[in-house]
């Protein structure tokens, strides 16, 4: 099990069109939900670099990288 992530991907579902570029670049971090929109999978085995690539590849600018929220 990897250490707790410092970053997360945040997806704006008002913008996400389900293009799936993000799932190609970060397949273990992002999946499509039942509505065909991207969902972040925090527990997956991914790297920060993959998240950055996924965010950069999104043609809708729907995916952004944010610091992980503090422990809850």
């Amino acid at each position: 099990m990897s250490a707790k992530p410092k970053t997360i991907a945040w997806i704006d579902h008002n913008l996400c069109a389900g293009v799936s570029m993000c799932t190609a670049y970060a397949p273990d971090a992002i999946r499509l939900n039942a509505h065909g929109q991207a969902e972040f999978n925090a527990s997956g085995d991914w790297t920060d670099d993959q998240l950055l690539e996924a965010a950069d590849a999104c043609p809708m600018s729907a995916l952004s990288i944010r610091p992980a929220p503090a422990d809850t």
Binding site: N14, A17, G18, V19, S20, G36, P59, M60, S61
Partner: peptide, 20 residues
């Protein structure tokens, strides 16, 4: 208008490449 989840560029894997 907000939100404005229009479908003008299509949706899914074929969503307009030139949208940006």
């Amino acid at each position: 208008r907000f939100p404005n989840r229009h479908a003008a560029f299509g949706q899914g894997i074929h969503t307009c490449l030139g949208a940006p």
